[in-house]
């Protein structure tokens, strides 16, 4: 009896171990599949990027659609950027003032605020807002075009959808986001001046002079360069997510959502890389 009991215990243990191993195997398999999917997605995106690049250099460029997209992406985002730019500058000023006042260096305030807006705050905040507004807009638009067969319709009427839809949007985003950033920078500095004038009064000329005394070309140039990459990333991710939306209406929402998430993430990553490179060069 005893023997039997112990042997059954052994078998039980063996079965348990076997089950654990099987479970582990299953988990590994699942992870492997996940990894495969991720690599497939990266491969897919690379292919998409390559096709876009190829179509961008094809002979007939869809100029009208490009202009329409510039309007859509650039002009229609102006109100949002105006408000956020102003507030960004004002808030930065109000927050920094006490610290500088402690050191008795309030006169450095305009320069410090301008530098941080131009180098970092302006580009990144604007790009993140654009990732939200433009990325989701493009993702949802192309996603619904895909789901309602409009992209197929384009293809059978001998128009390459990537040339018509993607190239124009990516290019428009790449060109418009730097413009929006510069505009946001300008409004941010204006907002800063307004905030300074809440306490005491500084003439705009004096403020401007103090602000731009500390800023040189190397503050400005890398910041502008990186915004082109922000724009390209936002446009590409939005288009990719929309263009590859699955069947069914709910995938439109998913496309828009993941476009925003990935575009925002890319903006931050590109910013990190840009800062590193600038740091190395200086």
């Amino acid at each position: 009896m005893k023997k039997l009991g112990s042997s059954s215990k052994v078998t039980k243990k063996a079965i348990f171990v076997k089950l654990q191993i099987m479970r582990l195997g299953e988990k590994t398999y699942k992870k492997k599949q996940e990894a495969n999917r991720m690599f497939a997605a990266i491969g897919d995106f690379t292919l998409f990027f390559w096709q876009t690049l190829k179509e961008a250099f094809s002979l007939d460029f869809e100029f009208n659609e490009f202009l329409r997209q510039c309007f859509q992406i650039g002009y229609k985002t102006v109100p949002l950027i105006s408000v956020t730019g102003m507030i960004m500058g004002a808030v930065l000023t109000i927050q920094s003032r006490p610290v500088l006042a402690d050191f008795g260096a309030v006169s450095l305030l305009p320069g410090m605020v301008a530098a941080s807006i131009i180098r970092e705050m302006g580009p990144v905040i604007t790009a993140l807002i654009c990732a939200g507004k433009i990325g989701s807009g493009i993702g949802a638009e192309l996603g619904s075009m895909k789901v309602s067969e409009q992209i197929d319709a384009m293809e059978v009427s001998s128009t390459h959808p990537i040339r018509f839809l993607v190239v124009t949007r990516v290019l428009a985003a790449t060109l418009m986001i730097p413009v929006l950033v510069m505009y946001a920078d300008a409004l941010g500095i204006l907002g800063s001046w307004a905030a300074i004038n809440i306490k005491g009064s500084v003439s705009f000329v004096l403020f401007f002079h103090q602000a731009f005394r500390v800023i040189d070309f190397m503050d400005f140039f890398p910041a502008v360069i990186k915004t082109f990459f922000f724009g390209a990333a936002i446009g590409l991710v939005g288009c990719y997510k929309g263009y590859t939306a699955a069947q069914g209406t709910e995938s439109v929402g998913k496309a828009a959502n993941s476009a925003v998430v990935i575009a925002s993430l890319l903006v931050i990553i590109i910013d990190l890389i840009a800062v590193q490179i600038t740091d190395m060069l200086l």
């Binding site: 309602s148 409009q150 319709a153």
Partner: peptide, 26 residues
């Protein structure tokens, strides 16, 4: 493909264009 007309199940009219622009497109 130019010799083949395809009427899609959903119609697939381009949402962002007027009917005239839709017809002009092809």
């Amino acid at each position: 493909r130019q010799k083949i007309g395809f009427l899609f199940q959903s119609g697939a009219l381009y949402d962002s264009m007027t009917i005239k622009q839709n017809l002009e497109f092809p």
